[in-house]
Amino acid sequence: MFKLSLPNRLALHVANLAVIAVILLPLAAVIIGSIQSEKSLQADTRRLLPPEVTGDNFLVILTQGEQRGRIFDQATYLPDNIKKFYRAFANSLIVASSVTFLTLLFGALSAYTIARLRYRWTLFLLQANIVSRFVPAIVLMIPLYIVMRSLGQLNSLSGVILAETGFLLPYAILILAPYFDAIPSELEEAARIDGCSRLRAFVHIVLPLATPALAACGVIMFIVSWHELLIPLILNARPEFMTLPVVIASLVGDVFVFFNLMMAICLLALLPTVVLVALLQKYIVEGLAAGAVKG
């Protein structure tokens, strides 16, 4: 709206380039780290780009240790968790999709009643959700661990799904409520006069209108639950039930796992959510803003 002078434009370009460089720095590191061997990292500790490029790190992960390529040819040790990559990927996918589905289902029902029914108890429900959103995961995990342990539910995907759904449900409700609030109620009222029940009106009239809200909330839920570490880390210790973040965390203390292999598995784990963010950016931006500011 204001004409910018040339020096100002240049300064803004420089500022933008600096921000872009900082955003891309870790991504450059993860890519460059993953396409070389530990030897080439050690050979020259000042060199930026690797002398030779290799796909062996990915090969060993994607074939679950069966094909080792040149880098790992002589390796006598490969962490077991690396050999369960597809299992972990599938577990992450199952957990994230189930949590997304459940939070959307229950969240939509609750958010709708909070937006439509102005009773004391719906207000209380909203406030309870707002406070719940702040509960740190570590406080829940100690008692949940003991409860799940006594119920024999440690090491199961369903335990993780239920815990994450409960943990994320308040956030889903906070994101969805303002969207439902913005949908005009005349349409449902007309349907209700024609004899439609509230639930039917919700399913057939409100939900179709709320698709952008469900998309925004759904993609945020998927991303947050794909990223979740603490809940599956504490509830699942057996490799069959580990999600990707847990597998990655298990490599942290392992002195025999080198950065290159870690960077490769990190790159594989971050790709799905990066693709989602690139494709659904508009919805995520709206959803994040809705979940934080609107009542």
Binding site: G33, L229, P245, L270, V274
Partner: peptide
């Protein structure tokens, strides 16, 4: 590009920075 860091799993972010 601004939303890109939001897509990175926190544990991966930690490991990348540790590298």
């Amino acid at each position: 590009l601004i939303l890109l860091p939001y897509a990175i799993p926190p544990i991966c972010n930690g490991l990348i920075w540790s590298f």
